[in-house]
Simulated assay, not measured.
Amino acid sequence: MFKQIHKLVWAFDAEWMPNPTAGRLLHNLPEEADDLEVMETMWQKGGATDENPRPFLKTILCRMLSIAAVQRQQHADGRVSLSLLSLPRDPNAPHDEKEIVWRFLNAIGERHPQLVGYNSLAADLRILVQRGICLGIQAPRFALRPNKPWEGVDYFAKGSDWHIDLRDYATPGWGSGTPSLHELAVLSGIPGKMDASGEDVPRMWLEGQLDRIIAYNERDALTTYLVWLRMAHFGGLFNPEGYLQEQQRVRELIVAESANKPHLHDYLAAWERLSPDLFRTEG
């Protein structure tokens, strides 16, 4: 289990989809080819079957759509605050993938949060680095590595306290016994996937529903954070009273944010259904 909680924690999640530009370039498809047709070709080339018509593609073949994170900050006076962060900030503005990736990676390099994700070493962090390279971004402070992982900030070393991949702690190694984030969350009394899944993201993008993608992304970030709290409690980093207090902070964050983000009302309602004893205790 992970050993410590840093003063600044970002529990993050990223959303992406097959990149039609990559499909056109790698499969010699015409520029005028429809985006959906290009993606269908990419899925076919990527091993589509009748049972799995849209297989998971290599992250290098995809493009970033949004990033969301729950930030936990312990201040000098001991006070703890939570924030919900997301990029892009305005779903109605022209989408700029390069700006999203640059902002997130350089913010990590500047602020040095402890990153928390689920399958983030193999997926989320990987695509951020790959897209950063392909887009010509510089993120030197994020990419800087110490000679030895314990001598400084290192987001790439497996098992590093600077980047906690919850999947690896829940089930070391791969295999059919590896739980999804949804499975681990719901069976722990935490909301998982609700009205959408990752398979729906390309369709939402093609229909111009970036706001729904960001909403889905934010809910996954909250789920990742709550699973992290659960695992930190399991490992003794929060005592029972502290764990209840941390969950109350999340509830307060959701209530505050839901004034402008109606999709969080549904998330809170789902959490209350899954963990009625928690809310009776707090209520």
Rank of each mutant, 00 (worst) to 15 (best):
L210K: 04
Q248V: 03
L61E: 09
Q130P: 00
Q71F: 00
K58F: 07
T171L: 08
M64G: 10
W228I: 00
P20S: 12
I127K: 00
N239Y: 06
G132V: 04
P94Y: 06
L253Q: 08
V153W: 08
G78F: 13
H27F: 15
E183T: 14
G109N: 04
R145Q: 15
G236A: 04
P191E: 13
T223L: 04
D266M: 05
A123M: 11
H95R: 03
T171K: 11
R111W: 03
A14Q: 09
R89S: 05
R111L: 08
T49R: 07
W102D: 13
A232K: 11
L125A: 10
R219D: 02
P172D: 14
G283R: 11
E218A: 11
F234W: 12
E151F: 11
Q247D: 01
L264G: 02
A270W: 03
Q248F: 01
L125V: 09
P94S: 09
L229Y: 08
Q245Y: 08
G198N: 11
V70H: 07
E241F: 08
G189A: 11
D77L: 03
P94L: 07
E183D: 15
E272H: 04
P140G: 04
G47N: 14
L187S: 14
K58M: 05
F104N: 02
D90P: 09
D35R: 04
G208F: 07
L264A: 01
